[in-house]
Write a protein that binds this DNA or RNA. Sequence first.
DNA 1: AAAAATTCCGCAAACGTTTTCGTGTTTATA
DNA 2: TATAAACACGAAAACGTTTGCGGAATTTTT
Lengths: 340, 340
Amino acid sequence: MKPRITLKKIANEFGVSISTVSKALKDSHEISEETREKIKAFAGFYNYKPNSLALQLRNQKTSVIGVIIPEIVHHFFSTVINGIETYANEKGYNVMVCLSNESYDKEVSNISVLTNGSVDGLIVSLARETQQNQNFKHFEALIKDDFPLVLFDRVKDDLACDKVIIDDVGGAYKAANHLVEIGKRRIALLTTQDYITVGSLRKEGYLKSLVKNDIGIDESLIYKIDDKQDLYEQIKKVIFVKNPPDAILAVNEIYAANALKIAKERGLTIPNDIAIIGFTSGLISEFTSPPLTSVVQHGFLMGKQTAELLINRIEHTASKEYQKEVISPNLKIRQSTLIK
Amino acid sequence: MKPRITLKKIANEFGVSISTVSKALKDSHEISEETREKIKAFAGFYNYKPNSLALQLRNQKTSVIGVIIPEIVHHFFSTVINGIETYANEKGYNVMVCLSNESYDKEVSNISVLTNGSVDGLIVSLARETQQNQNFKHFEALIKDDFPLVLFDRVKDDLACDKVIIDDVGGAYKAANHLVEIGKRRIALLTTQDYITVGSLRKEGYLKSLVKNDIGIDESLIYKIDDKQDLYEQIKKVIFVKNPPDAILAVNEIYAANALKIAKERGLTIPNDIAIIGFTSGLISEFTSPPLTSVVQHGFLMGKQTAELLINRIEHTASKEYQKEVISPNLKIRQSTLIK
DNA sequence: AAAAATTCCGCAAACGTTTTCGTGTTTATA
DNA sequence: TATAAACACGAAAACGTTTGCGGAATTTTT
């Protein structure tokens, strides 16, 4: 790579000082018009751009936001990043993306790398492992130093920082109510292992709905899927039973789509024999047949709000108190729950 | 945010010079063990980390890779980023992601921002607008300065830089051949507007296959979809005709999934009445019914190779010549082309 | 006891920028 | 003609780090 042109080189070219060049390029009245013009012409010709690192160091500000997410090949997370990027860009920030790959160690090391001065603030969604081992020392250290930090989606409640979450309880509640309204009583829940916060919150909404609708809770209808094992086989055990449920609420799109596929394999008609709803973030639900009714999550909005909270923090326009913003999901009704 | 601890502060604490502190922390033999230990203890206690900006400025190296893609809410691009991130991380680099949103202006400004010293190299996939207006001045400027640059997927051939592309011609060729093999003759092509390179390359493969299989080319079977208009209506015109095609080759997943949906609406059986293949990058094809045969694109591998080329460039371990790596897509056969 | 070697540390430059303050020269004012 | 003002520019510090070199003090060698 060719060495970039600097103020010093321009200064040498004209036999003036660095400060003169700097001022000339900023159209300072301190510099004569003649000098100004020739310096600007020269700089323009060589496409001079101030070195960003030098500026960042001097101004003690990078205008970069660090984002750490568990994975990026995931419609929900990429949608959130899109929201973050959009808002951040409007405000003159760039985005540095790091992946924890659900690993605690990677999350810790990402945080360590990003907080060495290269970003002004951090947006994080917790790795699965972190949620599992409940070790938050790396975040507590940040908080102790008042480092601008916003958690989204997968958060830890007692950490003193801004948070943006989906109303998972409400979403599951709405979805389960909908299933009851179309006449279903034996509603199975396909959820995650307990330590995944969103999974247990959605379970909470599901239970709340059953109680409200005077439907007894049948623990045998609650299936905790293990993501590390074969999905298909696990979900098969939900449907290939003597007396299958008449509805399924799945906490994500993949579970729902698999359930749909398996139900059809068993010859059940949808939604009459069995209705299915999934939490969604992607496009799968739209293209299954029948298309799946879904709880949609507004990832873009979430990203924007997350970025907004963070930038307010960075620029000290935030209130002293930490905020927790809750985004309500929508129920998008499609044919998998549409009884004629 | 609390001010971070610096060498200077540690130096003041012990009444020694900054260089002494720096050396002590690096276990230099120039510093007495006593001084070394107390400085290290103090630094450790306050969790000292060298300021990355200062290091970057001094070393003239950021260890950051800039990535500019048209959009991120897209399975293919997020998979590529995943590959880039994985490889870059192994090599000690971080990744800064910017979105052009298919806009020429945004692409130009992203490049301008990223090349002001904040990244060591750039990975780009061209915005749609850039492909349209064929203006590559911003890249030519980079190339003139020998700035490390790698283009992937949506590339411009005559730019003098490394490139990684999918063998789109070969992929479409394979796919069309497969359709012929299962007995189809009236194969419609759902492609993009001409200026999208991948669209026209896939068209090329399609045509090549027809020629090879002695099937006459019927221009009326080639549909150029406009992404800015309603997909559903456009694709409807392909299938709701007097004499619909007996197969469809779609240049992306969404076109294919829509075609499938519409074909079913028209009461056609798949694959007997009409077989469908799509280029894919996402999960939709797996969950449609029947599942769609797809040309799969190996985005992760693409990302890794792209990052590898770039880092070799940055670290001068690359050969003088620019490389063009071609990744062959696979044909994943599913029920939409499986004739019993 | 003198010379040489070793130990321990500080100075200063370098990376590239901005900005305050100072200074010498020219021009305008009294 | 002396003084004040205006003009045009430079020096230097600051952001935080690394590192070659020099030097004082101590220790070892001859």
